[in-house]
Amino acid sequence: MHRIPVTRLSTLTLAAALTAFTAQADEIWVTNEKDDTISVIDIDTLEVTRTIPTGDRPRGITFAHDFSVVYICASDSDAVQVMDPVSGEILYDLPSGEDPEQFALHPDNRHLYIANEDDAITTVVDTQSREVVRQISVGIEPEGMAVSPDGTIAITTSETTNMAHWIDTETGDLIANTLVDSRPRHAEFVKGGTELWVSSEIGGTITVFDVATKAEKAKIGFELPRILPSLIQPVGFEFTEGDSHAFVALGPSNHVAVVDAETYEVEDYILVGRRVWHMAFNADRSRLFTTNGVSGDVSVIDVAEREAVKSIQVGRFPWGAAFRQTN
């Protein structure tokens, strides 16, 4: 009695698989810090389709601009690994300096700016020649990395020194060192490179700098009812289309804040998984995927509705997230 439906189901599954193969969906790649793997999420089905082994303690992750390779900070392997995103094979390691945590790819699609957490150094690596071009001494525990859209300035934030270090990418010199609140974690240039945003985890704030003057322009604080201020710890953040709004991961408060990037007012808080850390948008930025370290999952946020619509189980301590376009 049961045979016919089962056969039909198999046929349908096969057909679905074939369709998926011909028009492959975009993906979100998530590094699992304590599992030494990457979980690949299919953006259409919101399922994990692949789990790929990496080096030790994968954290920062970013794709080449043409999505031909993916770069992974394997912190405890002291390497940036270069992976073929189709096969999931590690092609080779780039020299990275010790304990690479985060990095930013220069607009030239060639130079990686890497924060070496244990060494108080920023390392610049040429991804073509596979050589270290330069090492720059910065503050203790460098973490956040950003490069301006015109490629002239790189930023390293240092967690214990509590500064954003402004690096002239031409000369490698530090052109300014600006104090921010305690434990800066993430930096982004926005609005065509006219503003720099830096999150401070322990300080509980985001500092906005005017890039032209390097002066502080605004400071954004966060407040949630019934949640202790000390648990509201901003870490990763990303911007919606046109940089109109920032979505900010607030760590152990288990919420993502929505900030109007013009007025710097916080408009909303969205409940997600535990210890929300970093995030990535899909192609049209209608959906946001956040890594939740303690609950070991990824929350999917509907950006228009400003609510979490699904949580997807991944590996242990998901850390970084990156979007992969497949066609």
Partner: peptide, 8 residues
Amino acid sequence: LFGLCLAS
């Protein structure tokens, strides 16, 4: 006050 201190 302004957290702006040039290295040089």
